[in-house]
Write a protein that binds this DNA or RNA. Sequence first.
RNA 1: GGGUUGUUAGCUCAGUCGGUAGAGCAAGUGACUCUUAAUCACUGGGUCGGGGGUUCGAAUCCCUCACAACCCA
Length: 498
Amino acid sequence: MSQVPEDDLPEQLRIRREKRAAIVARGAEAYPVAVPRTASLAEIRERHQGLDVDVSTGVIESVSGRVIFKRDTGKLCFATLREGDGTELQAMLSLDKVGEEQLNLWKSEIDLGDIVSVTGEVITSKRGELSILAKSYNLAAKSLRPLPVEHKPLSEETRVRMRYVDLIVRPEARTNARLRPAVMRQLRESFNARQYIEVETPMLQVMHGGAAARPFKTFSNAYDMDLFLRIAPELFLKRCVVGGLERVFEINRNFRNEGADSSHSPEFAMIESYQAYGDWNTMADLTRGLVQEAAMAVYGTHQVVHHDGTTFDLGGTWREANLYDLISDGVGEKVTPQTSLEDLKKIAAKLGMKVDPKWITGKLAEEIFEHVTEGQLIEPIFVRGFPVDTSPLVRGHREVEGLVEKWDLYVQGFELATGYSELIDPVIQRERLVEQASLGAKGDLEAMNLDEDFLRAMEYAMPPMGGMGMGVDRLLMALTGLGIRETILFPLVKPEEN
RNA sequence: GGGUUGUUAGCUCAGUCGGUAGAGCAAGUGACUCUUAAUCACUGGGUCGGGGGUUCGAAUCCCUCACAACCCA
């Protein structure tokens, strides 16, 4: 932030700076180290419920909060204080309780947005409003900037750029900020109840892997080498299972150097978990359990109510469908894993799709799937059986040639989670990764690397297992109906020009 | 990457055909001992996102850059 000369400041900022200076000049503190506080506003409300009109309780308390409304009348002033979770309490300052000097200072020095401490008796006003009738007050922190209008919504951009202000003025912002940790807490409890162990694996990786995505690259001065921000923790979690951590999960950030839109953020929180002796079906049950338990924890029901008021049913067992059946239905002709690349290209052309010549057969099939189901798949559905050539870490389907045991969970039209029966044969795994490396050499920027240490770990024998991954931000989206940038407190925004 | 729309007071937004910049809230001064988005009176506040062009004259038309939202890939 550049330094603006004092007299170039907008009027309202200049006036507040002058008030701060005046407070300091008369020997008071604009930013004291502590202020009196005996109870939160919520505690005062809790302890003094159901009082009649115009009651004096005789109870003296000190409370603090941000001034969000201020109504100065001649000898009796009112202010509404708000604390972090949105709880509000009225403060009253009267001439006969605080004296003329303090009342005048309150009127002249305290502005909307300031944080104050008020000490006095808990009463109800003649209109019945629970209030603190001040004996004294202290400024806790002077706000040098005016609050935005309380009754008009902030523009979307300002909400994201100044989330701290958004949190002060918008109830939904406060709710959303608290919803996320509540979901995280439940996720960990759900895993814990199933005897899963939480581990933390590297975010700075020598070699990125575990997903098809372009990474962020960085450099370590100490090690004098390139490093990557991880795109997935998969290969490290599987190493854990080799070592006997039979049920593991990790909830942490992944980074993908790709486009950002209403459901993609360059950094996003991801749950991944692996269960020895499980398979894709085990992981589907686990995933449904995690989602439903999260819904129950935050809403007390599986019928979640979105921010726009619509309800969405996450309950029951969810529909399942085969990927190639959905493709066949969507394009109106039979498509199988054996359908050739050429035939798929004809279908894509008929659909008016733009085809990247680098796409391999399975990739094109998946693109056609996304094209024909665009905007559908609203109710939760497990889409099962993906092509082998795009899923190098997944075990071959036990019944259908050319497929792997992988499902994608779709909710509200977007992909919420994915689950596998994991490939555990190190010889086949090496073949698949060699194939990926050759795709990479041909210019596929999303292709996976040959991770020799991962293959060595597999050669020590990895037990049969299932694995799953779910985006935490997307889980929040499914629970709230919000866009991804509303589920993240501080999504990336380009700096404003000065 | 392509297209569309937007950027005006602290905030949210108007601004007609190109002719001296508007509102509500917020702010300043004064009045008011029961207000609840208090009320009443008066007052101040603008590089109209940045740069360039057309014109006697540009918030408005054109070009360009930045940022944002939405749609498409």
